[in-house]
């Protein structure tokens, strides 16, 4: 067992974990952060994307021990009173249907906008290449990122 200390959505946690424990399972099973779902076992789908020290990562491909000392933000930690503009944009633009990919898609979109506050359509599509959606055909997701960018983006 390894002792780790992680801050998740602003709350500090200390735990003993097995080396093999995936960050996503730590979040879901230990901390009850079930807003972040698991969609695959090969790091392709991006449903489990969270932000780790300000960068998007696939939490199914990070060991909890690797996240020791890190700050994690999940989709549940985005809204501080008000929704994050990207959350609003996803609703406004109908960028989700079943919603399973949405937490990861939102986290990846925030990451994209922080790096590039006014991306072109092509840059948005490539910036989201690590996140699969089966419902929307991506068109309204692209639109949502454009909408969020126009509203001032990543904040």
């Amino acid at each position: 067992m390894v002792r780790i200390q992680i801050t998740v959505d602003g709350q500090r946690h200390e735990d003993e974990v097995e080396g093999r424990l995936l960050l996503v399972h730590y979040l879901r099973d230990r901390l009850g952060k079930v807003g972040t779902p698991v969609g695959c076992d090969t790091s392709n789908c991006g449903s489990c994307t969270v932000r780790m020290d300000g960068q998007s990562v696939k939490s199914c491909s990070v060991l909890a021990v690797q996240a020791d000392g890190s700050e994690i933000t999940t989709v549940e930690g985005l809204a501080t009173g008000e929704w994050h503009p990207v959350q609003t944009a996803f609703k406004e633009c109908h960028a989700l249907q079943c919603g399973y990919c949405t937490p990861g898609m939102i986290m990846a979109s925030i990451d994209l906008l922080e790096e590039n506050p006014s991306p072109s359509e092509d840059e948005i599509r490539h910036g989201l290449e690590g996140n699969l959606c089966r419902c929307t055909g991506y068109q309204n997701i692209v639109k949502a990122v454009q909408y969020a960018a126009a509203q001032g983006g990543a904040q």
């Binding site: 807003g35 779902p37 549940e76 996803f90």
Partner: peptide, 18 residues
């Protein structure tokens, strides 16, 4: 706009695995 979305974009979801 969809009524469903408030839960889905904030992670207040209940998938079977949860």
């Amino acid at each position: 706009r969809r009524k469903e979305d408030a839960r889905l974009v904030t992670g207040r979801t209940r998938w079977t695995d949860s």
